[in-house]
């Protein structure tokens, strides 16, 4: 029941955080679809890690599930992070570049 309540609260959260415009069936249904898509897809992506390491996959799936449930609604947070703000876009570009260089350069030393 606590889980159900948590889910209901998250839907209310989506509704309030989407925009100040009048809430319509369209934008609520869109946000809900996005929420489910993000949740299910990222859990599936975590499951994909089983091809690299089964233990890592189990740990990541559990961690991801806990993290997602405690941080719902995800869709509106992801939407706010993917705005057209140059600062945010540059930030993610630099983070990706840093991760790629670090993981590929140092990671391949241990292969």
């Amino acid at each position: 029941m606590a889980l159900y309540q948590k889910f209901l609260d998250s839907i209310k959260g989506i509704k309030s955080s989407l925009s100040k415009d009048p809430t319509t069936m369209d934008n609520v249904s869109g946000a809900l679809a996005a929420e489910f898509l993000i949740f299910v897809s990222l859990i599936l992506a975590a499951l994909f890690l089983r091809h690299v390491s089964v233990i890592a996959s189990v740990v990541v799936v559990i961690l991801a599930a806990v993290l997602f449930f405690t941080n719902m609604p995800l869709a509106s947070k992801i939407k706010s992070e993917q705005s057209d703000s140059l600062e945010k876009m540059t930030f993610y570009v630099m983070v990706t570049l840093g991760i790629l260089i670090a993981v590929i350069y140092w990671g391949l030393k241990y292969v």
């Binding site: 989407l18 369209d26 934008n27 869109g30 946000a31 679809a33 996005a34 898509l37 993000i38 869709a75 992801i78 939407k79 993917q82």
Partner: peptide, 8 residues
């Protein structure tokens, strides 16, 4: 696709 679902 999540962003497109929320787009107006």
């Amino acid at each position: 696709i999540a962003m497109s679902a929320m787009e107006v």
